[in-house]
Write a protein that binds this DNA or RNA. Sequence first.
DNA 1: CACCCCTGTCAGACTTTTGTGACACCGGGT
DNA 2: ACCCGGTGTCACAAAAGTCTGACAGGGGTG
Lengths: 112, 112
Amino acid sequence: MSGTSPTGDELVPLLAALASPHRLRILAALARQRTYVSELARQLQMNRPLLYMHLQKLEAAGLVTGELVTAPDGSSVKYVQAVPFTVPLDLDTIVRAAQSLTGSGSAAQQEE
Amino acid sequence: MSGTSPTGDELVPLLAALASPHRLRILAALARQRTYVSELARQLQMNRPLLYMHLQKLEAAGLVTGELVTAPDGSSVKYVQAVPFTVPLDLDTIVRAAQSLTGSGSAAQQEE
DNA sequence: CACCCCTGTCAGACTTTTGTGACACCGGGT
DNA sequence: ACCCGGTGTCACAAAAGTCTGACAGGGGTG
């Protein structure tokens, strides 16, 4: 996922996942340190259900990874961490992404 | 705006503006050719009011520029074009952007 | 037992975004 | 006059995203 120019169908969810102050903060926190969910919620001072939602979006976009660790004593803790990535964001990437967009307005692609 | 690592308050609207298939297509179309609004609407097959909305968001994010040209015969036509930009999108940019985030969840920065 | 910390999900309220049709206005040509 | 194409804005409905409180359960400890 690093360095390659993503398709439109990949780029849109990626950008949507990043276009949020909360998720930016979450990612930044996870970039420095791998933590478990409740601790992260405390650290960022947000409700756990809310954090869950944001984490799911980040996970769906492939930006974070979750791992449910079961400690030797039986208690479960879910550790999450950021996934390194690199996307050069410029007009060229946009043009290429737009060409690989499926779904609705696929019109006006070829004309004469 | 090119190459520099944007602040969080700049990055979020930028990403939000790009996180849309319609706007990706609009930007891609404007990257190759400068056109006027109605022609662009025809080309992309979308309603003008809708295109207007998307253009306003792109313009607000600094990604397109509009110019209302009054032809010698008096009729006005609004030409729009894409503004070149480059933002390296990676974890490091995110971390730096999150540090420069103002507003709500600025908590967990300084305490005790 | 009661208490603590953890995970995970739910319904509901709320706000923002997206999309549509209609309208006003301008000027040129027939 | 009518018709055409262009700009710009409006109210409105529909959809998507955001956020909260409450709930289920698991496990450890006093």
